[in-house]
Computed example of a mutant assay.
Amino acid sequence: MKQKFTRFAALTAATVGLSLAAVSGASANEPTAKWCSGVKIAAFPGGPQGGVFANNVYNGFRQAEADLGPEVTYYFSDWDPNKMLQQIQQAVATKVDGIATYGFAGEPATGPIVEQAFAQGTIFTTLNTSLPESQKKFSANGFGYVGAPNYAAGFALASEAAKRSNLQAGDSVFVWGLKGQGGDRGQRTVGVIEAFEKAGAKVIYQEIDSATNADPNAGTATFVGVMGANPGVKIVVTDHGGLTSNVGVYAKAASLTPGQVYFAGFDMSPNTAQAVKEGFQNLVIDQQPFLQGYIPILNICLTKKFGFSGLDINTAGAFVDSTNVDAVAPLAAVEIR
């Protein structure tokens, strides 16, 4: 019995020694600055350089580049899905280590490019607008998504606006969106419309044209025309960060007073914060686009350096209104929120 105990004790001591050695070895890996140095990434802020929302994403990209150390090339696409698709193809051709982009062009157009990217060793991940089939296929290889679940976000915004404005069945609402855009992006507008239809509202819909998509000021005449033809509109939803930032301009051009129409939209900006304070903008979903830039760069670095799978993160967790805008406005002013 004593011999068996001695043998067990020896084995136990050896096991403990190995465990301690493993712990000691793990602790020898000290934190490293710029640990993603040498990794080349193509990053897509989405809109025009300096534009609303796109600049917040760009700031997130740049902060991640500064923190982590990769070499990042930026592609600005003017919110044009076809232009973005061409730029993605260009980025794949340069054989970068990773691509962080929107899924605006949809799965049929983008899926084959995703296949090509992973086949050559380029990590592909999305922000703001998902490519669910590609993500399902390549998640283990680093394909992630950072942004809102778009249909759910649209439905939530419209439902909250209906509740807060005491919308009644038969009331008119104006939805200005991108229902015609392919894939997941169009589903956000669909979510807005279906929530209002569920509430029994009469939906007046206007697709955002390409000129207004690139420059919100181009849509002022359209807004004035729609509101003039429908004087009883109770709620307006702008399903576009740039248009939401221009609500004050639209309202004044249409001779609306603060509170006359309930405005709800997507994304914070300095102008949106000001419109909330002035009483024109009533409700905003904050998608936190800075995170939609920062985290995809981190995702690519984690996959490239350590083999981690893709991250899936919902960034649209909060509403902004007059009760909390003062906390967000200073960050919106520097295009972080």
Results as ranks from 00 to 15, higher is better:
residue 2 K to Q: 11
residue 7 R to H: 05
residue 8 F to L: 14
residue 9 A to H: 09
residue 10 A to R: 12
residue 12 T to M: 13
residue 15 T to Q: 08
residue 16 V to M: 13
residue 18 L to W: 12
residue 18 L to H: 09
residue 20 L to H: 00
residue 22 A to W: 00
residue 24 S to R: 11
residue 29 N to Q: 10
residue 31 P to V: 01
residue 32 T to C: 09
residue 33 A to E: 15
residue 34 K to W: 02
residue 34 K to E: 13
residue 41 I to M: 04
residue 41 I to Q: 01
residue 42 A to K: 07
residue 42 A to C: 04
residue 42 A to D: 08
residue 43 A to S: 10
residue 47 G to T: 08
residue 55 N to S: 15
residue 57 V to E: 01
residue 62 R to G: 06
residue 62 R to D: 11
residue 63 Q to E: 14
residue 65 E to K: 13
residue 69 G to K: 03
residue 71 E to L: 07
residue 72 V to F: 03
residue 72 V to A: 02
residue 74 Y to E: 00
residue 75 Y to P: 04
residue 76 F to W: 15
residue 77 S to T: 13
residue 83 K to M: 07
residue 86 Q to P: 00
residue 99 I to V: 06
residue 101 T to D: 01
residue 105 A to Q: 05
residue 106 G to Q: 10
residue 106 G to S: 08
residue 111 G to A: 15
residue 121 G to R: 09
residue 122 T to K: 08
residue 125 T to L: 04
residue 125 T to K: 04
residue 127 L to E: 09
residue 129 T to Y: 13
residue 129 T to R: 03
residue 132 P to N: 11
residue 134 S to A: 15
residue 135 Q to V: 10
residue 135 Q to C: 04
residue 137 K to L: 08
residue 141 N to S: 15
residue 144 G to S: 02
residue 145 Y to N: 06
residue 145 Y to T: 01
residue 146 V to I: 14
residue 151 Y to D: 01
residue 154 G to D: 06
residue 160 E to W: 01
residue 161 A to W: 06
residue 165 S to T: 11
residue 165 S to K: 13
residue 165 S to C: 07
residue 168 Q to M: 11
residue 173 V to W: 04
residue 175 V to Y: 05
residue 179 K to M: 07
residue 179 K to D: 02
residue 188 R to P: 00
residue 188 R to F: 06
residue 190 V to K: 02
residue 193 I to Y: 03
residue 194 E to M: 08
residue 196 F to H: 03
residue 197 E to R: 15
residue 207 E to G: 04
residue 214 A to F: 07
residue 215 D to C: 00
residue 216 P to W: 05
residue 218 A to H: 11
residue 221 A to L: 11
residue 222 T to V: 13
residue 227 M to N: 13
residue 241 G to E: 08
residue 243 L to F: 04
residue 243 L to Y: 08
residue 245 S to H: 08
residue 246 N to G: 09
residue 246 N to A: 15
residue 249 V to F: 10
residue 253 A to C: 10
residue 259 G to W: 05
residue 261 V to T: 13
residue 264 A to L: 05
residue 265 G to L: 10
residue 267 D to F: 12
residue 270 P to T: 06
residue 272 T to W: 01
residue 272 T to F: 03
residue 273 A to Q: 02
residue 277 K to R: 11
residue 277 K to P: 03
residue 279 G to S: 10
residue 281 Q to N: 13
residue 290 F to R: 01
residue 293 G to R: 10
residue 293 G to S: 08
residue 302 L to K: 14
residue 304 K to E: 08
residue 307 G to N: 03
residue 308 F to H: 13
residue 309 S to H: 11
residue 310 G to H: 04
residue 314 N to A: 06
residue 314 N to T: 12
residue 316 A to Y: 05
residue 319 F to V: 06
residue 319 F to H: 09
residue 320 V to P: 02
residue 322 S to P: 03
residue 322 S to A: 15
residue 323 T to L: 05
residue 323 T to C: 03
residue 329 A to S: 09
residue 334 V to M: 10
